[in-house]
């Protein structure tokens, strides 16, 4: 296998594995930028994957080839509603954000598995019939070198992930809404004094993060696993959280980090077919993203700063 062929092989798989992480990590960026730590991304992703698969299995007769897309929307809505729980606890009830997130994670898995057993009478669902399929982008895929690397055999969900990431960058950095969002996360009292509704901004951000994590979960389930069981979402939410931190709480940084983690994941899965890489024990590839994240937060890759008010409930009138 030549070097170019290796790239043709590994880069599409990296993007493929990165897409769900990108959605979820962008969700994390919204939440943390508003000052709410969301460790519950994992549970929200589980919810998204579960709803995506169940909706897909149930309505495949109605929507036909469009089913995966409709399922994503369903997952987005349900996960968004689920995230309200986290929002109410952390914003209105001043709960510890990390602990509430842990509860969301446990609850997401428990509800999903409980429902799967209730609906299907077994621990995992059947395989879905309609899933996301690859296609070649016309014209662009004919470009030499770049074409086969980036535009051949792509998933439309991967394209959507890039659009969402760039859109999030625009919203957070180029719109009044984004300015308020960041202000609320850095110094809520100052924002409040300027007439920004801190509570409302935080609610919107947490619900947005739930919706995006739901999309991430549904994309993962409908393009990678094609079924739902206890091990469908197994740490991807935490990986997305890591990607967000690795990306320094910036949408495009998170996009880059997610792509990198996707690359590491792709290496550990398809690496056996690539010369040189197949000499490296898969163990090192498995732990690579986690070790890198620790190094990243330890500041070896430039000091990253979390939004200042992240993790602190805002209590009006308290200094």
């Amino acid at each position: 296998m030549s070097f170019l062929e290796v790239l043709y092989f590994i880069i599409p798989s990296a993007i493929f594995y990165a897409a769900p992480l990108i959605f979820t990590a962008i969700g994390g960026v919204f939440s943390e930028r508003s000052g709410v730590v969301n460790i519950g991304l994992e549970g929200l992703m589980v919810m998204g994957a579960f709803i995506g698969i169940v909706f897909n299995l149930t309505f495949v007769g109605t929507f036909g080839a469009m089913t995966p897309w409709v399922s994503i929307i369903a997952a987005m809505i349900v996960s968004g509603i689920f995230a309200i729980m986290h929002a109410v606890a952390t914003i209105s009830f001043r709960a510890d954000q990390t602990i509430s997130g842990v509860a969301i994670n446990m609850l997401g898995v428990a509800i999903a598995l409980f429902s799967v057993k209730m609906i299907y009478g077994k621990g995992q669902t059947d395989y879905i019939q309609e899933r996301f399929i690859r296609f070649d982008i016309p014209f662009l895929s004919d470009i030499p070198v770049l074409g086969p690397m980036l535009f051949k055999d792509v998933y439309s969900t991967s394209i959507l992930a890039f659009i969402v990431a760039i859109g999030a960058w625009f919203v957070i950095y180029k719109t009044p809404f984004g300015l308020r969002l960041r202000a609320v996360g850095e110094h809520p009292m100052a924002a409040d004094t300027m007439g920004v509704n801190v509570t409302k901004m935080r609610y919107i951000a947490v619900i947005l993060s739930g919706m995006l994590a739901g999309v991430g979960g549904a994309v993962y389930a409908q393009s990678i696993s094609a079924e739902f069981s206890h091990s469908t979402i197994n740490g991807q939410g935490f990986m997305a959280l890591a990607a967000m931190i690795f990306g320094k709480w910036h949408p495009l940084g998170a996009l880059g980090a997610a792509l990198f983690f996707g690359f590491a994941q792709a290496l550990s899965i398809v690496g056996g077919q690539i010369p040189i890489i197949n000499q490296v024990p898969s163990y090192y590839l498995h732990i690579l993203p986690y070790v890198l994240t620790i190094l990243a937060v330890a500041g070896f890759i430039g000091k990253a700063h979390a939004p200042k008010a992240s993790g602190v409930p805002y209590i009006k009138g308290k200094r």
């Binding site: 729980m85 606890a89 709960a95 510890d96 602990i99 509430s100 842990v102 509860a103 969301i104 446990m106 609850l107 898995v109 428990a110 509800i111 598995l113 409980f114 057993k117």
Partner: peptide, 15 residues
């Protein structure tokens, strides 16, 4: 899993 739901809810309420 009903018990996991109950446990998660208990943490949630304590939080």
């Amino acid at each position: 899993e009903i018990v996991s739901i109950v446990i998660a809810l208990i943490i949630f309420f304590v939080a």
